[in-house]
Amino acid sequence: MTPWTGDAAPLAQAIADYIDGDRSQSWEALALAVHRYQVARDPVLAALVERPVHDWTDIPAVPVGVFKTLPVGTISPDAPSIAFRTSGTTGGGRGVHRLHSTALYDRGAIQAACRALGPRCDAVVALLEDPAHAPDASLSHMVALFGPVGWWVRSGQLDVDGANQALADARGEVLLTTTAFAAAEWLMRGAVRAPPGARAMVTGGFKGRIHSLSEPELVDALRALGFDVVLEYGMTELSSQLWARPGAPYEPPPWLRVRAVDPVHGGLLPPGALGQLRFWDLANLDGTLAIETMDQGEVDEAGRVRLHGRLAGSPPRGCSLTVEEAWARRG
């Protein structure tokens, strides 16, 4: 794992080994080591440490909204880095995830995808922006790792004819990769049938959008075209992804832990309880290990996650500006 130097180099190597299946160091020990590394370099994380960290559950989770306001992570904004940015669809500012290298990200993404999709992919038809045009899009970066890709979204515009032709021409193990939003548009504007045995990876995309299809409807529509559908959950602020079959819980990879917390008090909830989701991602070495999302779900005994969308709306919330409105109006 050469991209890292100094204290980070052995840590990166240990994480890479863990991703590869080496359990000579426990997940808990690695999590605490990553935290010690990060807290010495990240003022945001350091400001959130209010008591001694003895256990991985003591590690403070950085609320995902903070990424829109402050540089979170071990890399200062003026240092050379690779930057992934959030889309801003949930309101205003774009969060930034800075990395020295995508080596850990890539290693984890490939392994997790292989578990969900199988090891071979001959052609990827991506209803996504080409990373050459959108180098800060982490989703495009991940999909580029899966095999030879054709990109069929340019400047936000979906090229339906191009995608359809690419699917018609594709041979071997074919994978359609798409956001839910792009898939809905593709279906509405004339999607073609899937090549034999083709799979479709659908991810997120409902957040902050007005949409005509629910997730089950979208899955049914893609299945009707002949696709074997697999769902993916990822966040720009993370370096690892969860995968699921429709109707089944999402499986985190072994180096990523998810827990539900009481959204009001922030305390960990028992398995099966509905709560706000927090992630502890070993692969997030350059960013921050623990992240508090604005999503809610249930985490079972095995650490698998059933998503329940965004946190429930407030009771009488008043007539003041929402966070999203404030961001949007600032421009």
Partner: peptide, 14 residues
């Protein structure tokens, strides 16, 4: 509410 509390934690972190 859940959203109020989560947003408050965000601003508190800042």
């Amino acid at each position: 509410s859940a959203v109020d509390a989560a947003n408050a934690r965000t601003r508190r972190a800042v």
